[in-house]
C-alpha cells in the first residue's frame, strides 16, 4: 500500500506534471556551474524523486484524495457536486465513537455504529455523497444515543446505590 512518503519512481517523468511549481531537490538551475567539472549526467534527469508530485497534483481529482492516485485501496473522492464548492471533505464517519461505545457501553448500539461508519466510507468511495452524509447522520445519532444511554444507566445506578436499593454485590463492566 502506498504511503505518502514512499519514494516515487524517479524516472517516471510523465507523472511530474507540468504544473508542479517547485522541485525542491531537483532541477539544478541552468546557471549552476557544475562544480565538479562534469557535464550534467543525463542518467539523472533533474532528479524528480522528491518533486514529482508527492501529494498528487492530479488535475482529475481536484477535491479528492490527490496523494493516492495509484493505490486501489484509497478511493478518490467523488466529483464535487453542486453546492460543495471546491469539493467537500469526506464526511465524518464517527468510527472512533463507534469503537468507544463498543468498548465502554456494553450495548449493541456500538456495533450498529460501526456498520454506519462503514457505510459512510463505502458510499463516499462509490460517489454517493448524499448517501454518505445520510449514513454519517445515523452514525452520529447512534453515537449520541450510546453516550446518553450510558450516562443514564450510570447515573441511575449511582442513584439507586445511594438510595440503598441495590446491594453492592457485583462489578463486571
Amino acid at each position: 500500500m502506498s504511503q505518502p512518503n514512499d519514494p516515487q519512481e524517479p524516472f517516471s517523468l510523465d507523472k511530474s506534471g507540468p504544473a508542479e511549481p517547485a522541485q525542491p531537490y531537483g532541477a539544478t538551475p541552468p546557471s549552476d556551474p557544475a562544480p565538479y567539472g562534469s557535464t550534467p549526467d543525463p542518467t539523472y534527469p533533474s532528479a524528480p524523486a522528491y518533486g514529482s508530485a508527492p501529494y498528487g497534483a492530479d488535475p482529475a481529482t481536484p477535491g479528492g484524495v490527490p496523494g493516492y492516485p495509484a493505490a486501489p485501496g484509497y478511493p478518490t473522492a467523488p466529483p464535487p457536486g453542486p453546492g460543495y464548492g471546491y469539493g467537500s471533505p469526506p464526511p465524518q464517519n464517527y468510527l472512533v465513537w463507534a469503537i468507544l461505545s463498543t468498548v465502554l457501553c456494553c450495548l449493541p448500539l456500538g456495533v450498529a455504529s460501526i456498520v454506519f461508519a462503514a457505510q459512510v466510507n463505502g458510499k463516499w468511495a462509490a460517489g454517493d455523497v448524499q448517501g454518505a452524509q445520510e449514513s454519517a447522520r445515523k452514525a452520529k445519532t447512534f453515537a449520541i444515543w450510546s453516550a446518553a444511554v450510558t450516562l443514564v444507566l450510570g447515573l441511575g445506578y449511582a442513584a439507586l446505590m445511594i438510595a440503598g436499593v441495590i446491594a453492592s454485590d457485583s462489578s463486571s463492566m
Partner: peptide, 11 residues
Amino acid sequence: QPGHYPTCPFL
C-alpha cells in the same frame, strides 16, 4: 472490587 460501578447491562 464489587459494587463500585454498575454491572454491564448486557451481562
